[in-house]
């Protein structure tokens, strides 16, 4: 703190950061928190907004569906991202590495909305995938791939791939190649090296990636509603309905707080189970 006090430039930066966090993060959430505990008419203290959620089997069901689905998608993203990250850090040469990184980042130059529309063109009954399958003679009819849970999963994995890959690359980068060689020299095979050397070293990166991807999926709105079709109800849509369709900011706030609390709790529990430390992981 003493060095900080001496350095005026750092104070200016710190002020900006505190203002940023305070005005754009803390303040809105405090308001959200407050709104969730008062009644819609009159504004006195009440727990009714929360009880409403817990008494509704429908909302509980949608909430559980959203949470389970987000978890599965996070695991799937992890399984896909890990080999990619490994190839980029350990296998690819310098130029290939830069190319591969660019290839991962490139899709994020278009917005999530456009990505979702592109998937719709790809998956629809008269779309690209269906056409390709027919062209190589696998089927004779057009097949509808859109509007399934698996379509949502593809869309979500795609939008969150980068956020898993980069942290894993980051942690694999610090793994000395000679450690892997040593493991093989000492009689280890592919699986035991992976289990004993590589994964433990990459664990903090995998943890950070999983946390980010899980949060992104839990709070997703665009991809889910566009690709999901008639059975797609996601918890964020329920929150949207409360705010916009029913004009009920208080219930909407309560639902938002529930979602926020759940995701924080979930992350905390996973950290405890895997014996990871968030500050260390970052």
């Amino acid at each position: 703190m003493k060095t900080l006090a001496r350095n005026r430039g750092q104070w200016v930066l710190l002020t900006f950061m505190l203002l940023w966090i305070g005005l754009l993060f803390v303040l809105p959430h405090l308001k959200l928190f407050y709104l969730s505990f008062v009644s819609r008419r009159g504004g006195e203290f009440t727990l009714a907004n929360y009880l409403y959620f817990f008494h509704s089997p429908l909302y509980r069901k949608i909430f559980v569906r959203t949470a389970v689905f987000s978890t599965l998608v996070t695991l799937l993203t992890l399984v896909i991202s890990f080999p990619v990250a490994f190839i980029i850090t350990k296998v690819a040469g310098k130029h290939l590495k830069a190319m591969l990184l660019l290839a991962i980042i490139l899709p994020y130059w278009v917005s999530e909305l456009i990505q979702a529309f592109t998937w719709m063109v790809f998956f629809r009954e008269t779309g690209v995938l269906s056409y390709l399958l027919r062209a190589i003679g696998l089927t004779h009819h057009n097949i509808e791939f859109l509007y399934h849970d698996s379509t949502i999963a593809v869309g979500l994995v795609y939008t969150s791939l980068l956020f898993m890959t980069i942290p894993i690359i980051n942690s694999l980068d610090t793994l000395d190649d000679s450690l892997i060689e040593a493991a093989y020299d000492l009689g280890g095979n592919f699986w035991s090296t992976l289990r004993e050397i590589i994964i433990p070293h990459a664990a903090p990166g995998m943890m950070v990636g999983s946390i980010m991807v899980f949060m992104l999926n839990l709070g997703n709105y665009v991809t889910v509603t566009l690709l999901g079709g008639k059975n797609s109800l996601w918890f964020t849509e329920i929150i949207y309905n409360q705010f916009i369709i029913r004009f009920n900011q208080n219930k909407g706030s309560a639902f938002s707080v529930i979602l926020l609390t759940f995701s924080v709790l979930f992350v905390w529990i996973v950290l405890k189970i895997t014996k990871q430390d968030l500050s260390e992981a970052m």
Binding site: P28, H29, K31, L32, L35, G43, I105, Y108, S111, E112, L113, T159, L162, F163, M212, Y221, V222, I239, Y240, F243, I244, Q249, G252, S253, S256
Partner: peptide, 24 residues
């Protein structure tokens, strides 16, 4: 990327709870 995609998503019409009206 995260900041950009959040901003774009907001433009794309997705509703974020914190952006909804805060006035009673």
């Amino acid at each position: 990327v995260l900041a950009l995609s959040t901003a774009l998503a907001a433009c794309g019409g997705s509703a974020k709870p914190t952006q909804a009206p805060t006035q009673q």
